[in-house]
Design a protein around this nucleic acid. Structure first.
Lengths: 229, 229
DNA sequence: CAGTGGTCTAGACCACTGA
DNA sequence: CAGTGGTCTAGACCACTGT
């Protein structure tokens, strides 16, 4: 008697993975399941909500709950701060500012960030090292219309990433993963040969509707990003 | 009076993003918040649980709830079936089996999948096209000890991905994203030049503790994977 | 040991939506 | 319009863990 929501979730998941409840089939209603497991409906409801969250089942009022035909396989990636990423690997972290310039946003950036014409941006390039070895090259553009205080910030000691996290702790973002061929500059910074295939991420973040930064992070040769799901 | 859990969540999130409640600061207890919002504690609790899930706050019994110092930025990626991915772009999908062979698992694969010596695997290579243009090259290894029925399956018409989803709808997986340089084979299949940088994913899936498949998916030049969070 | 979150309950009302 | 999920409530007990 008296199952917990974890018990209920585990049992239902088991029935689904073992095929007792096939993809597309109808799952008993919450009331029935509550009786089956001898618990309150709220308990069943919580188990079911988590299964929806996990992409295992689909629910619709009146129509009931069904096992998904094609499970939505989804992975969650933690987007780490570079320093933490490196330190978690047990390596020593070092940061270096490569260049810094205030400029008018180039056309491609205005299009990406949906900026008005003539917008001023702060363009930074930096390097992140793990145990002295190049780890990541950072190419960052900060919208000075949204973050005028960036103009006065000192990025010689602290990377723009950590500065931004302190300045704007929570924001919306869009991230892309892709592969690029190393040009001469990247090759020099990351200690690889021109033409080498490198893993790159691009990220745009917004705060209260306005884009505040665009960043392109290029990792050293051989880097991979891993997740479990 | 009588706020919903969405109201409560939105209001708390607003207080955090606007800086009213700074990173690291203590959030009022559930009992207090319930009184503030004029709702039941369970309602506040649900809002708070979702904020934990979103990586915004941390909670510990007795110690209370705090705004996270470094927000855990996390992105969720839907791992699509290639066919769906292509069709959702409005393109026509075509599949072709390139090769098929039963073999003893090579050492690197045995290590990756934690297989016993002498294990038999089915090695398949396939192509996926969008509007007739090469889209993705699939290099798949299926553990015949776990999935003996793969030996008899016809992969000429249906890709191994869809076959596997039907056979083992739900499983655990580990996925990696990386960049590779196209070798002669990949270049020929994907219609690019040798040496081009290509985006690649590797995935291992387990079912009931045993690895059943390893797959390496290489995308055509210029492919990028995008998510919002 | 006291305060906080974690969970369960029994009941209620509501919001959809398929038949 | 009836059945299903979605949510809220008031109260209860429990499980941690800081002081």
């Amino acid at each position: 008697m008296s199952a917990t929501y974890r018990d209920v979730k585990a049992d239902i998941l088991d029935k689904i993975t073992r095929g007792t409840w096939a993809p597309g089939s109808l799952v008993p209603s919450e009331v029935d399941l509550a009786e089956t497991y001898g618990c309150a409906r709220a308990t069943v409801n919580r188990a079911m909500r988590e299964l929806v969250e996990d992409g295992i089942i689909e629910r619709r009022r009146k129509a009931g709950t069904r096992v998904r035909m094609a499970p939505v396989r989804q992975a969650r990636f933690a987007i780490p701060i570079v320093r933490k990423e490196i330190e978690d690997q047990g390596a020593a972290y070092r940061y270096a500012l490569v260049s810094r310039a205030v400029a008018t946003a180039p056309d491609w950036l205005r299009a990406r960030l949906n900026l008005a014409g003539g917008g001023q941006v702060l363009h930074l390039t930096c390097m992140h090292y793990a145990d002295g070895i190049p780890y990541q090259f950072e190419d960052r553009w900060i919208n000075l219309a949204v973050l005028p205080q960036a103009r006065e910030a000192d990025f010689a000691q602290t990377g723009p990433n950590e500065w931004l996290v302190a300045e704007i702790p929570f924001s919306d973002a869009e991230i892309s993963f892709l592969a690029v061929s190393a040009d001469a500059g990247l090759a020099a910074h990351l200690g690889c040969a021109p033409g080498d295939a490198l893993f790159q991420t691009e990220r745009i973040t917004w705060w209260q509707g306005a884009a505040n930064t665009f960043v392109r992070l290029t990792y050293r040769r051989g880097h991979r990003m891993t997740a479990r799901y």
